[in-house]
Design a protein around this nucleic acid. Structure first.
Lengths: 141, 141
DNA sequence: ATCATACTTGACTAATCGGATCAACTTTCT
DNA sequence: AGAAAGTTGATCCGATTAGTCAAGTATGAT
């Protein structure tokens, strides 16, 4: 489980969309890039992936943009990471298959599983909510 | 926590040395590479790192080789991974510092911490012992 | 209608990194 | 002396990731 910039940006974008679900007009890419400092065309590339995963809808033309297409409570960070980031690497070494090799792999797998478990139990809804709280606090500072 | 081939090879080598601690003569690099299918000069590079960490001793000259220099029970896989692998990456994105960004980072950190915990509670002694068992079983097949 | 806005697509570049190799040198045993 | 091993430092390659560009298409506003 390596967290690439891709995954990070995807998550930020999804949070932004989740927080603005109630708005009538979709959210423009430009707004997201500005607010979160994400390199422009790169985000577009990422949004494309999110779209083919069915998690966001795009609206073309003037006043267009993106809109969340799923319930934030149904989307876990693990799903996001796996959809956008690298799809499982799991240590591609050409070591001989020996007892030692198997043992060691078991440990790596267990470690990977542990981190995946953390991501699996965190939903987009949760972290969007927590972000909203923080935003409110900032407002009063 | 990304498990690179480097870390994997280092662990295999250390297991080998742990299992042969009692031998009088040190273990030659060649033997380790052959037994585990590790690319030759690459292992040397890794052993250098292990040496400067103080975990193995090298003996030069003919009949030379490597020998474990610590108690296997005192060495965790986390220590090995951190010494040999990349020294903490933790998501270097140039995203703006916002509440959302902080929240997301917290989750990545938690995930990394979870996998690190697994590695921290596995010692070289443990997995060497388990490997030895497996080896014994194989012998009778 | 037409213009500006905004998404779509696909190819393309640039930098970084992990994996792996080489050559020249030193030490030590026999 | 000579063979066997480790030492060092430089270097290379290929894959992956991050990030960019340009040409095209759809749509609302005037």
């Amino acid at each position: 489980m390596t967290i690439s910039a891709r995954v990070h940006y995807a998550t930020l974008a999804l949070i932004e969309l989740a927080l603005r679900q109630s708005e009538k007009t979709p959210v423009a890419v430009r707004e997201i890039t500005r607010r979160h400092g994400i390199p422009g065309p790169f985000l577009v590339q990422i949004l494309r992936t999110l779209r083919s995963a069915g998690w966001v809808q795009s609206v073309r033309g003037s006043q267009g943009g993106y809109r969340l297409a799923v319930e934030p409570a149904d989307l876990t960070l693990l799903e996001i990471a796996e959809a956008v980031g690298c799809p499982e690497s799991s240590c591609q070494t050409d070591a001989t298959d020996t007892p030692a090799n198997r043992m060691v792999h078991e440990v790596w797998d267990a470690a990977g599983e542990a981190s995946r478990a953390v991501l699996a139990r965190t939903t987009l809804a949760e972290i969007a909510a927590r972000t909203a709280q923080d935003d409110a606090v900032m407002f009063y500072i």
